[in-house]
Write a protein that binds this DNA or RNA. Sequence first.
DNA 1: GCCAACGTTGGC
DNA 2: GCCAACGTTGGC
Length: 158
Amino acid sequence: MAKNFWLFKTDPEDFSIEDLKASPGKTTNWSGVRNYQARNLLRDEIKKGDEVLFYHSSEDPPAVRGICKVVKEGYADDTQFAPEDKHFFPSASPENPVWYQVDIKLVKELKTPVTLTDLKKKASLKDMLLLKKGNRLSVMPVKEKEYKEILKMSGEES
DNA sequence: GCCAACGTTGGC
DNA sequence: GCCAACGTTGGC
């Protein structure tokens, strides 16, 4: 099956690329997503080996900061079962999970982050979901062409 | 800190 | 099933 490409947004105050670098095996479980559209992608579409752009929102400037690889496909997000967790979701149970997560591993941190401003300047990226007005998905698909273009802009080889 | 845009909730 | 109210996201 063909490899797919994704972009994961994160507020660096919650979880940054530095946190990811400091994680065991530079790997983390992408928990806490509470949006049904994003959930469907995590559960059904995002496959082992897929590549992920790691994007920092809410920093100045917002930017793509790294490349990751999916190392584990969709499984239940444990934080939904934990009453003390801020992501607790009372109607979910281990038998009937509502929310899903995948594991991603950092492949490389971009030497040159690709900022939102840079992305907006590229005519070839004008249809990117990330740039669509009002888009609030934290997990979204990226076209292979867009992915390659962004790597090129960062000076990385793909 | 502001605010536009969006998703979710809950009353009816 | 509608829709107003609310909370959240995220760029600026």
